[in-house]
Amino acid sequence: MAEEKYPINLWVNEERYDKLQKANLADMCAEKLAGMKVIQVFANDAQKDKILKVFPTAKFDTATTRSIELLPKKVKDAIFDKVIEKQNPDILDDFLSAY
């Protein structure tokens, strides 16, 4: 059975969308929940556990969405900037290596 992956939802506000357009990455956005743009960065079990340990306000929504939520905005901004830098959402190992 494939290992479960847990999304971190980077909801795209105007400021983030401008950055994506400038990097020619606007197509990376998916559309969710009646028109909101989002980039999903996926964590495996080990990465999820590390995120929840390093950022104690974060919460794994076990009941409904099985996503990692409530990361501080500055952390999500840093993850978002890393996605832009690498032009790829597969950046969590790189991002977490600093912690």
Partner: peptide, 15 residues
């Protein structure tokens, strides 16, 4: 699916 927690995250992201 969406939850109160997910909506809080959206609001925190300034959306």
């Amino acid at each position: 699916k969406f939850s109160g927690t997910l909506i809080r995250s959206i609001v925190m992201d300034g959306v």
